[in-house]
Computed example of a mutant assay.
Amino acid sequence: MNHQHKRRLLLAGVAAGGLAAATGLALAQSQPQERVIKIVAKKFDYTPGEIRLKKNVPVTLEFTTLDVVMGFSLPDFALRTDILPGATSRLRFTPDKSGQFAFHCDVFCGSGHESMTGTVIIA
């Protein structure tokens, strides 16, 4: 293979790579931007207690607790996790329906546990 032929192949590869990169950029721009929502659990409260999401936009819920082991359950989406002191728990999902959905602590965390609830609102 002569020098001119190698140079043409190299330039063709660079052009194709640039096209692939530009196509990848266009695809990335058409995808919904994932949100990360930080939620702090403490006896007997979630902050925030109301979470607003957009239908079909991926989201990661990041949980921490300030005191004891807690749980998080969003039954309408079959989501649940334990929330452990000193750790971050993550749930990633893409809401596929609109409406208001209740979530609650499903690990007994003391007297007052039953009031540890919140709402996810999806539009």
Rank of each mutant, 00 (worst) to 15 (best):
Q4W: 10
H5F: 11
H5Y: 14
L10E: 12
L11I: 13
L11Q: 12
A16M: 11
A16N: 02
G17S: 15
G18S: 14
L27D: 04
A28E: 10
A28D: 10
Q29I: 13
Q29P: 05
S30F: 06
P32W: 07
E34K: 14
E34S: 14
R35P: 00
R35Y: 06
R35I: 04
K38V: 05
K38E: 11
I39M: 00
I39C: 00
V40Y: 02
K43M: 13
D45M: 06
Y46I: 05
P48H: 05
I51E: 00
I51F: 01
N56R: 10
E62M: 05
T65I: 05
F72R: 03
P75M: 15
F77E: 05
D82W: 08
I83T: 01
R90D: 00
L91C: 01
R92H: 07
P95Q: 07
D96C: 13
D96H: 09
K97C: 02
S98A: 15
G99H: 12
Q100I: 14
Q100L: 09
A102D: 11
F103N: 04
C105F: 08
D106M: 08
V107C: 07
C109Y: 06
C109Q: 12
G110L: 10
H113R: 07
E114D: 15
E114H: 10
T117M: 09
T117F: 01
G118D: 01
I121C: 09
I122E: 03
